[in-house]
Write a protein that binds this DNA or RNA. Structure first.
Lengths: 252, 252
DNA sequence: CGTTCTCTTGAATCAATTCAAGGCTGGTGG
DNA sequence: CCACCAGCCTTGAATTGATTCAAGAGAACG
C-alpha cells in the first residue's frame, strides 16, 4: 500500500458528498496542511483550549476523552485515519473535551480561517464537514447505548466490531487483522470498565473464539459471531453502502 | 409568561449567531412551520426512518433513544423547548435513533427543502444549525462520561443539573422549580440504571436535601451541593456567558 | 540488567440488578 | 359515588456483575 499524503487523506471527507464540484475539490487540494508527528500518549488538544486550527488524523490512533472528578478517564471516541476529531472547534470556541494520541500519530493541521473560507465559498464543502461531525455524533449516541445498557462482553464485542469496520473504511485493516495498539487500560477507559475486568472479558472473547487481541494486533476469528455478541448493526456509521457491503463480503 | 409562537421559538437557534443579517432573520421568520401535537409516550421519529422534514420542539419534553437487543431503552438526550432533535436527518438520510415524546408535546415541522434552501443562501444560517448539532454532540460526550464513569448518585445529580440549566435557558424553569414529567422508569433509561435503583438513589438525593422530584415537579434544594455531587460544569453546554451567569446568580 | 509497563490471576467486597410483593393515586365505568 | 384497574412508586431480600486490593509473571526499554 503506497503512503497517502495529507491532502489525499483529507479528501476522504468529501468522498460521500455528491453535489461537490471539481472546482471545489481543486481548491481543497491547495490548502496548506501542516503535518506534525505526535508520540503515543501525547495530548493533542486539551479541554479548555481555544484552538485556531483543526486537524485531520493522518496515521495512528487517537481518542477523545474526558476525566471524571475521581480522575478516571472516559474515552468517547477512537479516531482513525481520515477523521477530524476537533472540527467542532470551528463553531464552538472552547474545547469541552481533550484529544490524545493512543499510538504514535501523524496529524495534519489546518487553519480555521482556511476551513471557514472554504465553507463560505462552497456550501457543499460546508455540508461535507457538517456531515462528518454528524456521523461523529451518531457514534457518540451508540456509545451511550453501549456503555449504558450492554454487559461487559457485548460491550467489548460491539466496540471491536465498530473499530474493525471503521479501520476497514480507512483502509487500515487487512482482511480480519488490524493493528490496534490499545492497552487493556485504555480499553477499560473506552468501555467504562476496570482494567481487571477488561482482562477477564478479553479472555472470555478469546475462549469463545470470537476475537483475539495480543501484541497490539486485533484478529477477528468469527465475524458473524462477534457481530451477534455485540448486537452490532453498522447503520449508525452511515457508510456508503458500497463500503459496508465490501466489508461484509470479505468477512463472511 | 406569554405563549411563544413557533417562529419565535425556532429563532432561538440563531440567537448566539453573530454574523447573521437582519435579512437572513427575516427570511427565517417567513418559513412554513407546521405545528402538530404529540401525546406523552408517542413516538415522533423512528430508527430507520428517512424523514423529509425536521422539527423544532415547541413544548413538552422529548427524548432521543435506542433499544438494546434485550429491549432495554437507553435515552441519550432529553430535549427541551427550542431543540431540533433531528436536524441531523438533513445530512444523514437514515435515522439511527428514535425520538419520542416524554410528555405531551407540541412540535413544529419544517421541510428539509426549506432548511436546505436557507442554508444554501446564508452561510450564517447554516453555521447556526451546524452549531446546534455540535452542542448536541457535546452533550452526548458528557453523557458517555456520566454513564460510563460516575456512580448512580453523582450520575443522577449531574443529569438534574444539566436539565435544570437547559430548562432555564429555554425559559421553562421558574427559579429552582421546574416541571419535569419524568417517571422513575424513564429516569432509569436516561441514566442506564434499573427502576429500583433509581428509586433508592432518588431518595438518597432527597435525604441529602439536594433535590426533590415528586409529582412531575423537580425542585432544587441546594444548587451548589447538587453541582458538587454531580461534578457539574456547564461549559460543555456552550451557553452564552450571559445565560449561564444569570442562572448561577439566581441559584446561589 | 534493572526498571517500568503491561498482562494475569485470586480473593474479598460492593454497587447495582433481579425478583417479589405491597401501597398509592388518578382515571373509568358500573 | 364508590369499586376497580392500571400505572407508578416503595420496600425487602437474594443474586450477580463488576470493582478493588494484592501480588506475581512477562515483555519492552534504556
Amino acid at each position: 500500500m503506497p503512503a497517502l499524503d495529507a491532502h489525499e487523506i483529507f479528501m476522504g471527507v468529501f468522498r460521500s458528498e455528491q453535489n461537490i464540484s471539481e472546482r471545489d475539490l481543486a481548491s481543497v487540494r491547495e490548502i496548506p496542511i501542516h503535518v506534525v508527528p505526535k508520540a503515543a500518549g501525547e495530548s493533542i488538544v486539551r479541554e479548555g483550549d481555544r484552538p485556531q486550527q483543526s486537524f485531520v488524523l493522518l496515521d495512528g490512533l487517537a481518542c477523545t476523552f474526558k476525566l471524571s472528578a475521581r480522575g478516571d478517564r472516559q474515552i468517547m471516541a477512537v479516531h482513525v485515519r481520515g477523521d477530524l476529531p476537533d472540527v467542532q472547534s470551528l463553531h464552538l470556541k472552547v474545547m469541552d473535551c481533550s484529544i490524545g494520541a493512543l499510538s504514535p500519530c501523524r496529524i495534519g493541521l489546518i487553519e480555521h480561517s482556511v476551513l471557514r473560507k472554504l465553507s463560505r465559498e462552497s456550501p457543499a464543502v460546508a455540508a461535507a464537514l457538517w456531515r462528518h461531525t454528524l456521523i461523529e455524533a451518531a457514534i457518540f449516541r451508540e456509545w451511550v447505548l453501549n456503555v449504558g445498557r450492554r454487559p461487559a462482553l457485548s460491550r467489548m464485542a460491539h466496540f471491536f466490531c465498530e473499530l474493525v469496520v471503521r479501520l476497514h473504511a480507512a483502509e487500515k485493516c487487512h482482511g480480519l487483522r488490524c493493528e490496534v495498539p490499545l492497552t487493556q487500560g485504555a480499553l477499560g477507559d473506552v468501555l467504562g470498565l476496570s482494567l481487571v475486568h477488561v482482562n477477564r472479558t478479553l479472555m472470555e472473547l478469546r475462549n469463545a473464539k470470537l476475537v483475539e487481541l495480543r501484541g497490539g494486533v486485533l484478529e477477528v476469528l468469527d465475524w458473524p459471531g462477534l457481530v451477534a455478541r455485540g448486537e452490532f448493526d453498522p447503520m449508525y456509521l452511515h457508510l456508503s453502502s458500497a463500503g459496508s457491503h465490501a466489508f461484509h463480503a470479505a468477512a463472511c
